[in-house]
Design a protein around this nucleic acid. Sequence first.
DNA 1: GCTGAAAACACAGACCC
DNA 2: GGGTCTGTGTTTTCAGC
Lengths: 147, 147
Amino acid sequence: MKVDKLNWLILGQLQSNARASLTEIAKKVGLSSPSVAERIQKMEDAGIIDGYTAKLNMESLGYSLGVYISIKIRFGQVEKFTEYIKTVPEILECHKLTGNDCMLMKGYVRDPKHLEALNLKLAHYGELTTSLILSSIVDSKIYSTNF
Amino acid sequence: MKVDKLNWLILGQLQSNARASLTEIAKKVGLSSPSVAERIQKMEDAGIIDGYTAKLNMESLGYSLGVYISIKIRFGQVEKFTEYIKTVPEILECHKLTGNDCMLMKGYVRDPKHLEALNLKLAHYGELTTSLILSSIVDSKIYSTNF
DNA sequence: GCTGAAAACACAGACCC
DNA sequence: GGGTCTGTGTTTTCAGC
C-alpha cells in the first residue's frame, strides 16, 4: 500500500495524540474529515496502523528502574523460557536476537531489591547480563516522514 | 498518587484502544462516564499517562529489519553523538546504559544494504555491535495490573 | 476528495446519594 | 468517593457532486 505525504502527516498526528478527533486531525493536515476518516480506515485495514495505545510513565507508577536484560538460554530451555517470559509482568519486551541463543528483554522494577528478585527468577533459564537504563536520549520517536 | 484497581482497569482499556470514548471505557470498567473522565484527568495531571499514540507496523511500512545496535562511544564523542542520534530517522530509541559508555539503540531499516549504510553513519562515533531482531516474543505488553 | 446535511454520540455540568 | 440526568455541542457518517 502506498503511504503518501498526507498519510504520513496523518500518522504523525495520530502518533502525537491518538485521541484526537477526525475533525481535529483534518484541520491540522489540511483535509476534510471524511477524507481523513477514509485514509485512516485504509491504513488500519492494511495493518499499517496496529492500534492505539496510552503511554504510561513507569516512573510515576513507582517502577523507577528501567533495565535491559540479555539472556543466553541454557540448552533445551528455549521453549520453556518462551512460554514463561510471557507471564512475567516486569518484562515488557522480549526479542529473540541473532547470535548465541540470545534474547534481549526490557523491563521495569521498583528498586534494586525487586531487580534482584527478577534476576533470580530468570537465572534459571540461562546466563544473564543486566544493564540499567541511566537515561533515554531518544524514546517513542514520532515517524512523521518517510526514510 | 494512588492507582487503584479501577484505575488499572481504565489504564488497560486506554492501552488496548486509546481512541475509545469515555462512554465505551465506562461501560467496560463498570463506572459512569463522568467518573472515568475524572479519573483519567487526574492520571494525566499526575503524569501517569504520558500521552496517546498510534502503533505503527514497521514491516507494513517497508522497514522489515529491526535491529538493536549498541555502541561504545569513542572518547570525547558523547555530546556530539547525543545530538547526532536524535536526528537519525532510523533510530527510534537510544538509551544510555550502565557500563562502558555504552548506548543501546533500537532501529528499523529496509534491508541489509540500508543497515550497512546506517552502521557506516554511526561507526564514526564508536565501536558498534549490531544484532537483528529475529522475532519478538513479547512486545507492547499491556500493564493492566499492578506488580 | 469535497461539501452539506442528518443522525448519533459524546461530553460537561448540576445535583443528589 | 460515585451515579444519574439533561442540554449542548461536536463528531461522524452518509448522501451527491
